[in-house]
């Protein structure tokens, strides 16, 4: 009786996800092992050619570009996000929630519009270039848009709120006691940060980093609009294989590789967080982080 009730509750959701998530993913995995038909369809001949081509110089360059851009965006977002999250966690308790909502608020407006705002600011006739020109700082407009700089900036802008949120929950869980103990034992601010706070917030750093990296490397909109197609990333490559080149098997193989990268990172993050917790425990600090 109880089992059937649970089955009734679970069936629609699990059925939906099986049909519209698992099955479609299996289909593109299967497509990635076939050849492209002459007119853009699927030629059902088994091949590993798509995966081999993914290693060719053209695709490998886009892979490396994507990793570099996503990696830079992750690093910058962490460097900006960590002190910000720390400042919020150190603010009076009754103000922390409002400060966090203020961080997350822009994120809730449309992604395209947030990206468009940077076109308005960065283009040759944009606010920054015209402002600097009128102040006489520059004669020629600076090349701010349609390059790697603009793509990294756009990614950081869109994802830094998430990093702050992840780091805040990690930092605020620490409580002041450990830091005070470190001060009492003669540790300077810097030593306390390096030896106490930073190691204990590694899981939060890893979570935030994986998040930004995964969202960045598969991004389509930002490299397209702010990079102007100059720096295509993995997401743009999949897009063009599907909609322009009409090579669905190749696009599917690239999509599958993207999922593998994502899974590897999530797995690595879980192991890393687990080990960090273990190390802290081994040093005699409870991992459950005192409140």
């Amino acid at each position: 009786m109880n089992l059937s009730r649970r089955t009734i509750l679970l069936a629609p959701g699990l059925g939906y996800l099986a049909l519209f998530l698992v099955l479609p993913c299996l289909i593109i995995f299967a497509y990635s092992l076939f050849e492209r038909g002459t007119y853009g369809g699927i030629d059902y001949t088994l091949t590993a050619g798509n995966y081999l081509r993914a290693g060719s110089s053209l695709f490998a360059r886009i892979f490396l570009d994507s990793v570099r851009i996503a990696g830079t965006a992750t690093l910058v977002a962490l460097l900006i996000g960590y002190p910000a999250a720390y400042a919020i966690a150190a603010a009076p308790r009754n103000r922390q929630m409002a400060l966090l909502v203020l961080v997350m608020l822009p994120f809730w407006s449309n992604y395209l519009i947030r990206t468009y705002a940077w076109i308005v600011l960065l283009n040759n006739e944009g606010l920054i270039n015209r402002g600097l020109e009128s102040m006489g700082v520059i004669q020629e407009p600076l090349p701010l848009l349609y390059n790697e700089f603009a793509v990294v900036l756009g990614l950081v802008y869109n994802y830094v709120p998430f990093v702050i949120l992840a780091l805040y929950s990690s930092i605020s869980r620490l409580g002041p006691e450990l830091r005070e103990a470190s001060f009492d034992l003669g540790g300077s601010s810097w030593t306390t940060f390096r030896r106490v706070t930073l190691p204990l917030t590694v899981p939060g750093i890893a979570a935030g980093a994986v998040f930004v990296f995964v969202l960045s490397i598969g991004n389509f909109v930002t490299p397209d609009l702010l990079g102007g197609g100059q720096r295509p990333m993995l997401g743009n490559l999949i897009y063009s294989q599907y909609l322009s080149a009409r090579d669905w098997p190749m696009g599917s193989a690239l999509g599958f590789i993207l999922v593998l990268i994502m899974l590897a990172l999530l797995f690595g993050q879980a192991v890393f967080a687990h080990r960090a917790a273990g190390e802290v425990e081994a040093r005699g600090v409870p991992a459950g982080a005192p409140r």
Partner: peptide, 8 residues
């Protein structure tokens, strides 16, 4: 990633 769900 959105793009993967989109092509799938």
């Amino acid at each position: 990633p959105d793009i993967v769900l989109a092509i799938a």
